[in-house]
Every structure is written in structure tokens, then in C-alpha cells.
């Protein structure tokens, strides 16, 4: 183990680190938006969309990201759709994450006690008001733990981007190992790199969970 080697490799790891953060952020944002739309389609039981969303969720949850990426990156050009690796990575992450986020939101909406909805109706709220004042605030608060777990999961999944040669953290480490054979040093930096992202994030998300949680009846 030599500190000099680690020091020399840091600028390259820094680039990978930033790319990992950037792609994670875009992918997670897209996944949250897609997931929210999907869960709303399911919550309001919109006829055709509901079935499409159901099929999408099963398809995306039951296949690995790696094969989704391969299909998008290597398979789609065969039928004339050519995308850059970067775009493919983000699309793959959104395709995978969207279904996990949708399940998270659905879990939150389903977790609202029936008494809340009925009370809302009893005091004469319209469907729109019910959604705005009862379903959304309580549903979001309930879905935060699931969303937090998904965010961590998606950041870890970005390590798979290495297979379509996106120079993120894992890819940087593998490249350097291939070039200079300082395996231990580079693997250490790699693990520390993920730890720097994930440990603080997991602490912040746990704090947020406690902060946002609405008191339920009887608390």
C-alpha cells in the first residue's frame, strides 16, 4: 500500500466521482418523476395507463440493470436507434428506478388510513381537495423511507455503468488497475469513494425521515 500511488490517482478518481454523482442525480430525479406519474396512474386507476404502468413495473423490476443497459446500448442501434453511452446510462437508470420509485409512492398512498379519506369526505372535501390536503401530504410522508432506500440503491447501481464504458468511479478504478496493477490502492480508493457518497447520504436521509414524518392518529 503506497500513499504516493493513491495521491497520483486522485485527480482521475475525482473525475469519476463527479460523473457518478452527476449521473446519479439526473437518474434519480428522472426516476422520481417517472415513478410519481406511474403511481398516480395506479392510484387514480386511469383505465389503459394503469395496465401499461403495471406491465412496465413488472418488466423493469424483474430484469437486471446490466441487461437493460446492454439492450439499450447494443441492441437498439440494430433497429436504428443510436444513443451515446451517457444517455443510455441515464435512460437505463430512469427505466430501472422509475418502477422502484413508483412502488415506493404507491406504498405511501396505500398506507394512508381509510379513516383519513372518509373523514375528508365527511367534512365535504371535493376529490381535488381530498388529494391536495389529505392524500398527498400523508402519502409523501409515508413513502419517504422507501424512496430513501431506493436512492441509495440507485447510486450503487451506477457502478454497473462501467460495462458500457462510462468513466465513472468503478470504471476509473478498473482502468487504472488494468494500466498500473496497483490493485490494492485503487480498490481502496474506490470503496472509500462510494463510502464518501453513501454514508453521509444515508445519515441525512434517516434524519429527513424522522423530520418529515407526520404524527399519525394517537401519536
Amino acid at each position: 500500500m503506497s500513499w504516493q500511488i493513491i495521491q497520483q490517482s486522485l485527480p482521475m478518481f475525482q473525475k469519476g466521482f463527479i460523473l457518478t454523482l452527476q449521473m446519479s442525480a439526473l437518474g434519480i430525479l428522472g426516476a422520481i418523476i417517472l415513478g410519481l406519474m406511474c403511481s398516480l396512474c395506479q392510484y387514480f386507476k386511469i383505465p389503459v395507463l394503469k395496465q401499461i404502468v403495471g406491465a412496465y413495473i413488472e418488466l423493469s423490476r424483474n430484469t437486471p440493470l446490466l441487461i437493460q443497459l446492454f439492450f439499450i446500448y447494443y441492441g437498439l442501434p440494430g433497429i436504428g436507434l443510436k444513443l451515446s453511452a451517457y444517455t443510455c446510462g441515464i435512460i437505463g437508470l430512469i427505466f430501472l428506478g422509475g418502477s422502484y420509485m413508483a412502488e415506493g409512492f404507491s406504498g405511501g398512498f396505500d398506507g394512508i388510513p381509510n379513516s383519513q379519506i372518509e373523514s375528508g369526505k365527511a367534512i365535504g372535501l371535493s376529490q381535488g381537495q381530498l388529494t391536495r390536503y389529505v392524500v398527498f401530504p400523508q402519502g409523501f410522508a409515508l413513502s419517504i423511507p422507501a424512496l430513501a432506500a431506493n436512492i441509495i440503491f440507485l447510486i450503487k447501481e451506477t457502478s454497473i455503468f462501467t460495462v458500457i464504458a462510462i468513466p465513472e468511479l468503478t470504471n476509473t478504478a478498473l482502468d487504472l488497475i488494468g494500466l498500473y496493477y496497483h490493485t490494492n490502492e485503487y480498490l481502496l480508493v474506490l470503496v472509500v469513494g462510494y463510502a464518501i457518497i453513501l454514508i453521509p447520504l444515508s445519515i441525512i436521509l434517516t434524519w429527513l425521515e424522522r423530520r418529515i414524518r407526520y404524527g399519525t392518529f394517537g401519536d
Binding site: 457502478s159 454497473i160 478504478a173 488497475i177 490494492n184 480498490l187
Partner: peptide, 19 residues
């Protein structure tokens, strides 16, 4: 939980024989 599975695979794949 923290270390991605890809990284775990490489850790074991490279370090078991070496160390």
C-alpha cells in the same frame, strides 16, 4: 450494504489470490 456488488466482486476477485 454500502459497497456496490460490482465492487465487492472485484475486491474478492483481485484480493483473494493476491493477499
Amino acid at each position: 450494504r454500502i459497497v456496490p456488488t460490482v465492487v465487492l466482486l472485484f475486491l474478492f476477485y483481485y484480493i483473494l489470490p493476491k493477499s
